[in-house]
Structures are given as C-alpha cells and as structure tokens.
C-alpha cells in the first residue's frame, strides 16, 4: 500500500463571487495516475490551478510529503514561443538547465538528442509536445500536473504522448494528476478517476468500478457511449 501524498478536505474555490467548486474531498496516493474527468466548465482546470497555489481556495489541502511539482499547462504550445527565436536548447535554458541534461531528457521521451539545436517553432506538433514532456521532467518532479496535454495535436499524436507519459510514470514511479474531458484516456491510462460536473455530481475511485452509464449520464448531463477498439 502506497503512502498518501496529498489529502484534500472540504475544498472549495470561488471566482468572481461564484462558487466553482465546493465540498470536495479526495486523496492522492504516491504512484497514482489520477485523472480528473468532466465536461467543459466543470472546474477541472480551476481545481488543478488551485492545487498548484495559483488560485485561492477554502478548505484543507495537506501535502504529506514535500512535492516537487512538474506542470504541463493547457495552451503552452508552439504559438506561445513563435514570437521569439528560441531553440530547444534555449527552452531548457529557461529553467537554467545545461544542454547535456536537456539531451538526456529528450532521449528519454524518444527524441533524437540533436533536436536540441533546432528552432522550437520548427518542430512538428508531436515533437513539440514530447519536448515539453522532457522539459517538465527535467525539473525532477515527483508529481506531474497535466492539463489537457494533447489538445494541440491530432488524435494519434495525443495517444502517443499519453503512452509516453504512462511509460515514464511506470518507469520513474511518478504520481500523476491529469485533467481531461476524454473518457478514453481514463480507461486506457488512469488508476483512479475523480469526476466533476456542472450539476454538482461527483465520483471518485477506480475507473472500471465506478464509471457506470448512470454515473456518466449524471456527469455529462447526456447519454455517453464509449467506443472500445
């Protein structure tokens, strides 16, 4: 049995006098791949950002061990760096990492080491996303916060990135806190799921045990079908 890493009790967030989250309770154990699932507007990103200390919250949030956080946010894509002549080496330099360290992590995510001298804006969408995963891992985190990490790339590229994250999660014994609205990701990769909905319905547990058709209808407010291949 793994130790508890994070314990959240009676957690709430209010933005512009509107409660977005309230009365939330869950724990994250070490080595867990927890996915926060829910439709748009259910407060997934708000939860993630408040756990990172970026938005104020009410209730308790107790780290049982000091976290070393890696954060891959939504919207960090090639457009964000296109205004600047940045090589991959420069991007690793933003975290004051040496090129040799950068190469180690680029190879870990299956990229050629010499990509470090390429312009970040010239990488393909998939290569850029892998590079970002390497960049996040280079901070030596013990918990990764991922916010829709595959929105900027196509379905095949997205699946590759998730397979990569899962492989690294298993190899390095990381804890993962992942936000998505994609049900397939939950079944394919997650050990635990936390559901949020706009209607106040919640669930928390092992995906195959708790994600029944009735629960999914409550979460998404409509019939949801999962196509398995």
């Amino acid at each position: 049995m793994n130790d508890i890493l994070l314990e959240v009790k009676d957690f709430g967030v209010t933005l512009d006098n509107t409660p977005v989250l309230s009365g939330l309770n869950f724990t994250v154990t070490e080595g867990e791949f927890l996915t926060v699932l829910g439709p748009n507007g259910s407060g997934k990103t708000v939860l993630l950002r408040s756990l990172l200390g970026l938005i104020p919250h009410t209730g308790e949030m107790n780290w049982h061990k000091k976290p070393r956080i890696g954060y891959l946010p939504q919207g960090l894509n090639q457009v964000s760096v296109r205004d600047m002549p940045l090589t991959v080496k420069d991007i690793f330099g933003l975290k004051e990492l040496k090129p040799a360290e950068g190469v180690t992590f680029l190879e870990l995510v299956g990229l050629e080491g010499d990509i470090i001298n390429k312009r970040a804006g010239h990488l393909s969408g998939g290569e850029f996303q892998r590079m970002l995963v390497a960049w996040v891992l280079a901070s030596h985190p013990n918990i990764l916060f991922l916010d829709e990490p595959t929105t900027a790339i196509d379905v095949a590229g997205g699946e590759t990135v998730y397979s990569l994250i899962k492989e690294i999660w298993q190899r390095k014994g990381l804890t993962i806190f992942n936000v998505t609205h994609d049900l397939n990701i939950v079944y394919a990769h997650s050990t635990h799921v936390l559901c949020l909905s706009r209607f106040g319905h919640r669930c928390y547990g092992i995906p195959k045990e708790i994600l029944t058709p009735d629960v999914l209808r409550d979460i998404y407010g409509a019939e949801v079908k999962l196509y398995t291949h």
Partner: peptide
C-alpha cells in the same frame, strides 16, 4: 530567462 518564462507562461513560472 525568468522574465521570458513569465512572458511565455506565467503559471509555469510560478510553479517553478
């Protein structure tokens, strides 16, 4: 490097 990281993504800079 710190100001550029803030310019690129302020939340990432804060978590760093």
């Amino acid at each position: 490097s710190k100001i550029l990281l803030i310019n690129i993504h302020e939340d990432v800079a804060k978590t760093e």
